[in-house]
């Protein structure tokens, strides 16, 4: 399995960043960067990363099963994450969540039928002073109003 030049360069740098014989340390970052390119952690990807980090596929499974951001199922083209933790809750994050579920017709960790958008209710994303906040893939959006969210969802669905 090969990756883009940029990702390969990242892997090379990763593997040289840890003490001699401790390549397993690169496992989680490598899975994250690979997932960004592939879209999800596939069986083929698990085996490839296991080989590169010198671990067994079972050790990769252990990690994939633990970390929320590592996904074994395909997500939408755009992954919409809405924070409903306390600071966002006080500023209407829970209402944004209901609004998104209703408009997209999907729930937590589900994908729209056309594959355009997936939705996730996330725990605190560290945007408390700019609540309510959401993440569109890796991009933060702060002080989000219901109107802004509505327009964003129209855009994401229209972009198909």
């Amino acid at each position: 399995m090969t990756f883009s030049q940029e990702t390969e360069a990242r892997f090379e740098r990763l593997l040289s960043s840890y003490p001699e014989g401790r390549h397993r340390a690169a496992l989680i970052p490598m899975l994250m960067y690979a997932q960004d390119e592939v879209g999800l952690v596939t069986q083929e990807l698990k085996e490839e990363v296991a080989r590169r980090c010198g671990v067994t596929p079972l050790q990769v499974d252990e990690v994939v099963g633990y970390y929320t951001m590592l996904r074994s199922k395909p997500m939408g083209k755009t992954h919409l994450q809405i924070c409903t933790n306390i600071s966002c809750l006080l500023r209407g994050g829970d209402k944004l969540w209901d609004q998104a579920c209703h408009k997209l017709g999907i729930g937590h960790n589900e994908v729209t039928a056309d594959g355009a958008v997936s939705l996730e209710e996330v725990e605190c994303i560290g945007a408390c002073s700019w609540a309510p906040a959401i993440q569109v893939n890796y991009d933060f959006r702060h002080n989000v109003t219901p109107d802004q969210l509505d327009k964003l969802m129209d855009q994401l669905r229209g972009a198909q």
């Binding site: 960043s17 970052p29 994250m32 633990y66 929320t68 951001m69």
Partner: peptide, 8 residues
């Protein structure tokens, strides 16, 4: 170097 977590 930086080292990324994965949501935990």
């Amino acid at each position: 170097s930086t080292h990324t977590g994965a949501g935990a």
